[in-house]
Amino acid sequence: MIKSLKNLTAVTVGALALLGAIETQAHEEGDFILRVGAAHVSPNDDSSNVLGTDDGVTVDSSTGLGFSGTWMLTDRWGFEVLAALPFEHDVEGTGSLSGLPIGTVKHLPPTVSFQYYPDVDGDVFNPYFGLGVNYTLFLDEEASPELKTALGSDDVELALDNSVGLAAQLGADWKVGDNWFINAGVWYVDIDTEADVIVNGATATTVDVQIDPWVAMLGFAWSF
C-alpha cells in the first residue's frame, strides 16, 4: 500500500512538471465539485502495551465508499468537506499477543480542509493540495470471542475515544468530458485514541493507539 501511495504521488508530481500551455482552467470561483470513489484506509499504527511489556495492538486496512464536496471560494482556493460510509477494521494483538484477535471497530472520518489549486495553465489536468482538520468518530466496538476467552469472561467491551487531528492531502482531477473528471487523492490523517478494555464493568487496561492512516481514493468528480 505504501508503495502504491508513493507511485501515485510520483505520478502527480511528474504531471505537474510536464503540463503544457492550455490557457483555460477547469475549476473556477463559485463552482461546486462533488467527488465520489473507492477509499482505502491503510493505518500507519503504533500503540502502548496492553498487558505486558512486549505486546501491543495493530489495526488492519479497510476499503469503503468515500465522497467529498468542494466549494471554490476563488479560482485558486476551495473549501472541502470529506466524508465516507463507516470503515470497519479488525484489531489484533502484536508481540506476545501476536495472533490474538482483539476485536473490530468502525469509524467515520469527517474532515474539513482548505485546498489550493495551483496555476498550471491547463484544463485537462488539475492538481490541488489541502490542509485541514479531521474528526474521527469510533462506533460499534466489539471484543472478539478469543479475547473474551483469554480474559476468562464473556463480559468484555472495547471503548475507543473519538479523535481530532490534522489532515493533509494531495489530489488531482483529469477532465474526461464536460464537467466530468477522473479523480485521485491521497491523505495523511493524524488519528490518536485511547482504547479501554472493560471486563465485568471495570476498566482492565487502557491502550494508547496511534492509527495515523494513509488514505487513497480513486473515483469520479462532477463540477457544476
Score class of each variant (00 low, 15 high):
Leu8Gly: 07
Thr9Ile: 13
Thr9Asn: 10
Ala10Ser: 05
Ala10Leu: 04
Val13Gln: 00
Gly14Ala: 06
Leu16His: 00
Leu16Ala: 08
Leu18Gly: 08
Leu19Phe: 03
Leu19Ala: 09
Gly20Met: 13
Ala26Arg: 02
Ala26Val: 00
His27Gly: 12
Glu29Arg: 14
Gly30Ser: 11
Gly30Pro: 07
Gly30Lys: 06
Phe32Glu: 02
Leu34Asn: 04
Arg35Thr: 13
Ala38Ser: 09
Ala39Lys: 11
Ala39Trp: 12
His40Leu: 03
Val41Glu: 11
Pro43Ser: 10
Asp46Thr: 13
Ser47Lys: 09
Val50Cys: 02
Leu51Ser: 15
Thr53Met: 04
Thr53Gly: 04
Thr53His: 03
Val59Arg: 03
Gly64Tyr: 05
Phe67Asn: 03
Thr70Arg: 15
Trp71Lys: 14
Thr74Trp: 02
Phe79Gly: 06
Glu80Tyr: 07
Ala83Asp: 01
Leu85Gly: 00
Phe87Cys: 01
Phe87Gly: 01
Glu88Asn: 15
Glu92Asn: 04
Gly93Tyr: 02
Ser96His: 05
Leu97His: 00
Gly99Glu: 06
Gly99Asp: 06
Leu100Gln: 12
Pro101His: 03
Pro101Ser: 02
Ile102Tyr: 05
Gly103Asp: 00
Val105Phe: 11
His107Val: 10
Leu108Ser: 08
Pro109Cys: 07
Pro109Gly: 06
Val112Asn: 03
Val112Gln: 08
Phe114Met: 14
Tyr117Glu: 07
Asp121Gln: 09
Asp123His: 02
Val124Trp: 10
Val124Tyr: 06
Phe125Gln: 03
Asn126Gly: 09
Asn126Glu: 15
Asn126Ala: 14
Pro127Trp: 13
Tyr128Trp: 07
Phe129Gln: 06
Phe129Ala: 11
Leu131Ser: 05
Gly132Val: 10
Thr136Pro: 00
Thr136Ala: 08
Thr136Gln: 02
Leu137Pro: 04
Phe138Val: 13
Ser144Leu: 02
Ala150Trp: 06
Ala159Glu: 15
Ser163Lys: 00
Leu166Val: 15
Leu166Ile: 15
Ala168Glu: 05
Ala168Gln: 07
Asp173Glu: 09
Trp174Thr: 03
Lys175Glu: 14
Asp178Met: 04
Asn179Asp: 14
Asn179Lys: 15
Trp180Ile: 13
Trp180Tyr: 13
Ile182His: 09
Gly185Glu: 14
Tyr188Arg: 02
Ile191Met: 05
Glu194Ala: 12
Val197Ala: 00
Ile198Met: 00
Ile198Cys: 01
Asn200Cys: 07
Asn200Arg: 12
Asp208Leu: 11
Gln210Val: 13
Gln210Ala: 15
Ile211Val: 12
Asp212Val: 10
Ala216Thr: 10
Ala216Leu: 10
Ala216His: 04
Met217Ser: 13
Phe220His: 09
Ser223Ala: 05
